[in-house]
Amino acid sequence: MSTVSNPPVSASAVQLPADWRDFVALTKPRVMSLVVFTGLCGLLAAPGSINPVLGFAAILCIALGAGGAAALNQWWEADIDALMKRTSRRPLPTGRMARTDARDFGVALSCISVGIMGLAIHWLAAAVLAVSIVYYAVVYTIWLKPRTPQNIVIGGGAGAFPPLIGWIAVTGEITAMPVLLFAIIFLWTPPHFWALALFVRSDYANAGIPMLPVVAGQAATRRQILIYTLVLLPVTLAPWAIGGTGAIYGIAALALSAAFTVLALPVAFRRSGADDPMRPEKRLFGFSIIYLFALFGALVADRMLLA
C-alpha cells in the first residue's frame, strides 16, 4: 500500500471493539461539516428550485460520499496516521478497528451515496459525486500525496466538488457559476492547508509525506501561500463580475478576501525560527475556515435577499 511500513500493533489493541463513534470518526466529521455546508450553499444559490425532500437527499448523498472517501483515505493511510501526532488517535492507528472494516465501510458509503444520488436526483450529479470520491480516495490519497509536494494543489479539487454537485442537483447542468465556485475552493485549499502544514511540518517529515514545507522549506511555502491568496481574490469576485450574484456577495467577497490577504502577508514575509509559536500561521489557518463559511454564506444570502 503506502510507502511507509505499518508499525506493529499489539494483539490486545487489535482486539479492542469498534463502536459507532469509531465509524463516525472515519468520516472526518469536522471536514465533512465544511463539505456539507458548501454543498448546501451550492444547492440553495442555484437558480430554480428543488423539492425539499430531494434537496435533503442530495445533501445527504454529498455527506455520505465525503464520509466514504474519508474512510477510504484512513484505510489506506493507517500506517502513516500512526506516525503523526495529530492523527495517531484515529480508530485504525490505535487498533480499535480492523483495516478491512474501514475499507468496506468506505466502499459501502461511497456506493450508496452515488446510487441514491442517481436514482433520486439525476445521474449527472451522481457522476460528479463519483468523480469526487475517486479523486480524493485514489488520485489524492494513493497517487499524489506520497509522491509530490504539489499534492495539495492538484488534490485540492477533491474538496471543491460539493458546491458544484449541489448546483447540478438543482439545475441538471454545469455552467460558469458552479465552475467558479469549484475554482474558489480549489484556490483556497493551498494557502489554507499550507498554513497548517507550516506548524505541523515535523509530523509530515516523520511520516515521509512530501508536503511543501518539508520538501521546499518554509520560505518557498510562505511565498506560495501569498501567490495563491492573491490569485484567489479576483476569482472570488468573478461570480459578481459575470452577473451571477449581486452586491451582497460582491462586497462580502471583497472584504473577506482583503482580510485573507492581510493575514497572509505576515506569513509570507516572516522568517520563523525552530521554536517560533507561528501565531500568524495559526491565525491564517483559523481565519481561512471562517472565510470559506462566510463567503458561501454570503452567496446564499445574496440569492435569498435579492431573488
Score class of each variant (00 low, 15 high):
116 I>D: 06
94 T>P: 08
87 T>I: 08
82 A>E: 09
102 A>Y: 02
116 I>W: 05
121 I>T: 13
76 W>V: 12
81 D>R: 03
110 S>H: 00
84 M>V: 03
115 G>H: 11
80 I>K: 01
85 K>Y: 09
123 W>C: 10
116 I>S: 04
102 A>H: 12
97 M>I: 01
85 K>F: 11
86 R>F: 01
113 S>R: 00
88 S>E: 12
74 Q>C: 04
97 M>Y: 09
94 T>D: 09
94 T>M: 15
98 A>C: 03
91 P>T: 12
81 D>E: 11
105 F>E: 01
94 T>C: 12
90 R>V: 10
117 M>E: 00
101 D>Q: 15
121 I>S: 06
86 R>N: 10
116 I>R: 00
114 V>G: 04
79 D>Y: 09
83 L>E: 15
119 L>G: 12
79 D>F: 08
122 H>A: 11
110 S>R: 01
99 R>M: 12
81 D>C: 11
83 L>H: 15
107 V>W: 07
92 L>T: 06
113 S>D: 07
81 D>S: 06
116 I>E: 05
122 H>D: 03
79 D>H: 13
106 G>H: 02
91 P>R: 12
95 G>F: 13
84 M>W: 00
75 W>L: 02
107 V>E: 10
98 A>R: 14
84 M>S: 04
76 W>E: 05
78 A>C: 01
84 M>L: 10
122 H>N: 15
105 F>K: 00
103 R>E: 14
74 Q>K: 12
94 T>S: 15
111 C>Q: 14
115 G>Y: 04
99 R>D: 02
107 V>K: 10
74 Q>P: 01
116 I>Y: 06
100 T>P: 12
107 V>T: 05
117 M>L: 11
90 R>L: 15
78 A>I: 07
119 L>H: 11
100 T>I: 14
92 L>M: 02
104 D>H: 12
109 L>M: 13
90 R>T: 13
96 R>N: 14
102 A>N: 09
118 G>N: 07
89 R>C: 09
106 G>E: 01
75 W>G: 01
112 I>C: 03
112 I>L: 11
86 R>A: 10
81 D>H: 07
94 T>Q: 15
96 R>L: 09
77 E>N: 06
84 M>G: 06
120 A>C: 11
108 A>L: 12
116 I>A: 06
109 L>G: 03
99 R>Q: 13
111 C>W: 08
120 A>F: 07
75 W>H: 14
106 G>V: 00
99 R>T: 11
92 L>Q: 05
77 E>G: 00
79 D>E: 14
112 I>K: 04
89 R>V: 14
90 R>I: 14
83 L>R: 13
83 L>K: 13
109 L>Q: 10
109 L>N: 02
120 A>E: 14
92 L>Y: 02
114 V>N: 08
93 P>A: 04
109 L>H: 07
103 R>C: 15
74 Q>R: 10
99 R>P: 11
113 S>W: 00
81 D>G: 05
123 W>A: 06
114 V>Y: 03
88 S>N: 05
92 L>N: 03
87 T>K: 00
82 A>K: 06
84 M>Y: 05
